[in-house]
C-alpha cells in the first residue's frame, strides 16, 4: 500500500534535545483545550487513552527501536532511548513474550494518560492544580504552564493540514523526521476522531483528502500503527463495555 515510502526502516535524524516535545506529549496537548486555569479534554476517554497509547508506541518507532508489521510489535533495537518513559516501555516490550499490537495498545491505554501527563508535568509544561469538586474530595488537575506554548503543536498541525501544500513532495515525509512526527500526529488525530476539533475554521474536507495522501506516504510501521489505533477505537465502540 505504501509504495512511496517502501517498507525500509525509518530514516532521518531523531531529535536529541530533551526540551523537544515527544509525540505523545503533543497528542496530549492537542487533545485538550487550554484555559487559563485548567485543561479540558476534547476527546472521549477511550479515544484519548488509545490515542496516547498509539502515540507512545509511535515514539519508539520514530526512535527506530520498534518495528510494527502484520499486527506484531517487534524490537528492532533494544538500546534504551533518551526518554525515561519510552525506555521503560521498551524494557517491558523486550522482556514480555510476544504480544500483538492490539494487546500493547490495550495495555498501554490503561495508564497512558497518567504517564504522559506526569511526563509533561516533570518537563515543566504542565502544572498541577488542586480542585475541590462539589460531589467529592479534591481532584488533581493539570493546567498548561504557558497556554500559548501549549498551543504550538496544534497550530503546526493546523498549518500542515489546512494550508494547501502544492509543491510538497510526499516522499519527504519518510525522510524528514520532524515532518514524519507531525504527519503521524495528524494521522492519530484522524484515527481517534479528534481531527474535527482541530479544523474548526477551515473546512475539514480538503484537510482530510490532504491528510489521506500524507498518511499513505508514512513509513509502513507508522501507517499500520495508526490504522490499528483506529480499529481499536472502533472495536471499543462495538465492544459495549468501555
Amino acid at each position: 500500500m505504501a509504495e512511496i515510502a517502501g517498507s525500509g526502516p525509518v530514516t532521518g535524524r531523531a531529535p536529541s534535545s530533551s526540551s523537544h516535545l515527544r509525540l505523545a506529549d503533543e497528542f496530549f496537548l492537542v487533545a485538550h483545550n487550554h484555559d487559563a486555569d485548567t485543561i479540558v479534554p476534547r476527546l472521549h476517554d477511550t479515544g484519548m487513552e488509545l490515542g496516547l497509547a498509539g502515540a507512545l508506541l509511535a515514539e519508539l518507532v520514530l526512535d527506530r527501536r520498534l518495528e510494527v508489521a502484520d499486527g506484531r510489535v517487534i524490537v528492532f533495537d533494544p538500546s534504551p532511548p533518551n526518554d525515561q518513559l519510552a525506555a521503560s516501555m521498551l524494557r517491558d516490550i523486550v522482556t514480555e513474550p510476544p504480544h500483538s499490537i492490539r494487546v500493547w495498545l490495550e495495555y498501554l491505554s490503561q495508564d497512558a494518560r497518567d504517564k504522559v501527563g506526569s511526563r509533561l508535568h516533570v518537563a515543566g509544561h504542565l502544572a498541577q492544580v488542586r480542585q475541590r469538586k462539589w460531589w467529592g474530595g479534591p481532584a488533581l488537575l493539570y493546567r498548561a504552564v504557558n497556554a500559548e506554548q501549549a498551543l504550538i503543536p496544534e497550530v503546526r498541525l493546523h498549518d500542515l493540514l489546512a494550508r494547501p501544500h502544492p509543491g510538497m513532495q510526499l516522499a519527504k515525509i519518510s525522510i524528514d523526521h520532524k515532518l514524519m512526527q507531525d504527519v503521524t500526529l495528524a494521522a492519530l488525530a484522524h484515527s481517534t476522531g479528534l481531527l474535527s476539533a482541530l479544523l474548526w475554521y477551515h473546512g475539514p474536507h480538503r484537510a482530510r483528502s490532504q491528510l489521506d495522501e500524507m498518511r499513505r506516504a508514512l513509513p509502513a510501521p507508522l501507517l499500520e500503527l495508526t490504522k490499528q489505533t483506529e480499529a481499536a477505537v472502533g472495536d471499543a465502540v462495538l465492544g459495549r463495555r468501555r
Partner: peptide
Amino acid sequence: GANSVIGRASQDLPKRTDSSGVLPLLTSP
C-alpha cells in the same frame, strides 16, 4: 466491522513464514 481499516481480524495474525524462522523466544509458550 471496525477492523476493516486493517483488512483483517484483530486476533488474526498472519502466520510467520520466515525462511529461517528459527528463533522463537525462550519464553515462547
